[in-house]
């Protein structure tokens, strides 16, 4: 009587289960037959299967226990190149037994690394190329420095097509015996912008409410992304600082958001069409948001800095009369 997140449960384990990115899969299968792979860069939008395919590749190469032959790093969680270096060094030192003469380092979201860190990474790739292969993933390949790109076989992942995503969702619904309307799956595709992981998350949450309908999909998305940040901005702009501050505390306590999380969301909201503001004000506010984010990253106090931000909004709102 236990259940997993469907994003995990329905992840393809082997390349043969992957239904899209056909050309890429074909090329990778050839590598497996030869038991030899180059360094690789998987580039493409989120949720198109980069990481999943990297795991499937390793699975097909090493078998069920493939994870012991693979070092998984995520550049957005481990920003320090020193950490990456130590881990790679440690991992590359141990010899591989078996028929595959190398191990794999999977470095996810490599485009989150600074170019200095990438230079260091390049040296690591050269240093350990005898015993390891690197697979890098990136949303924006242009943010990967050229020397790395030139050392890698580059694979461009394309956005998933509507029929691929809807087909997969339909398959899951059948497996899970969930009643769903096709229109609802269409809407899930639109909301998730072709990101399979997000689409499956939405489907599972909607299914938890019962039948998957257009209404239940919208309801789930509304519940998952409360408009707390927007409401806080609107309260502040209306000059109600005290209420805005209460919302801020709510976000920090009930949602566990850090000051940086909140200011980033604010930044998105400032340019949203649903927040009615004159454009010149959006620019002023965005500039100040940037200043606040910088202070927070430097270690300033979340609440004091965000209060200063909200106080400024109250003042600006009063002057312009939004």
């Amino acid at each position: 009587m236990s259940e997993l997140l469907w994003a995990e449960k329905y992840r393809p384990r082997s390349l043969s289960e992957v239904v899209n990115q056909k050309e890429i899969v074909e090329r990778l299968k050839r590598f497996i037959a030869e038991k030899s792979i180059p360094h690789m860069l998987f580039a493409g939008p989120p949720g198109t299967g980069k990481t999943t395919i990297a795991h499937a590749l390793a699975h097909d190469l090493y078998g069920e226990n493939y994870r012991q032959y693979m070092l998984e790093l995520n550049a957005s969680d481990e920003r320090k190149i020193e950490v990456i270096r130590t881990k790679v060094k440690e991992f590359a030192r141990s010899r591989v037994v078996g028929e595959v003469p190398f191990k794999i380092v999977l470095l996810d979201e490599a485009d989150n690394m600074t170019s200095d860190a990438q230079q260091a990474l390049r040296r690591l790739m050269e240093l350990y190329s005898a015993s390891t292969r690197f697979i890098l993933t990136a949303n924006y390949p242009s943010k990967i420095i050229e020397p790395i790109q030139s050392r890698c076989a580059v694979f461009r992942f394309t956005s998933l097509k509507r029929e691929d995503v809807v087909g997969r969702l339909m398959y899951i619904c059948n497996q899970e015996k969930v009643v769903c309307r096709e229109k609802a799956l269409d809407i899930i595709y639109d909301i998730s912008e072709g990101d399979m992981r997000r689409a499956i998350n939405i489907l599972q949450a909607a299914a938890a409410l019962g039948e998957v309908t257009e209404d239940s999909v919208y309801k789930v998305v509304g519940l998952a992304h409360p408009r707390e940040v927007r409401e806080m901005l609107q309260l502040a702009l209306a000059g109600n600082f005290v209420e805005a501050r209460r919302k801020l505390r709510d976000l920090m306590i009930n949602y566990g958001l850090s000051g940086v999380d909140i200011i980033k969301q604010i930044h998105r909201e400032i340019f949203s069409s649903e927040v009615k503001l004159p454009d010149e004000l959006r620019i002023i506010i965005a500039d100040y948001a940037g200043e606040i984010q910088f202070r927070l990253v430097e270690g300033a106090d979340d609440e004091i800095q965000l209060n200063a931000f909200l106080a400024r909004l109250s003042l600006l709102g009063k002057k312009i009369k939004v």
Binding site: L5, T51, N74, S76, N201, Q204, A205, L209, V220
Partner: peptide, 23 residues
């Protein structure tokens, strides 16, 4: 478990988990 970064889990997974847990 989901083969992704903590940042993605926070922004794309936890919000939907919350929906399931409260509904």
């Amino acid at each position: 478990r989901l083969l992704t970064s903590k940042a993605i889990v926070k922004s794309d997974v936890i919000p939907y988990l919350r929906v399931i847990f409260t509904q």
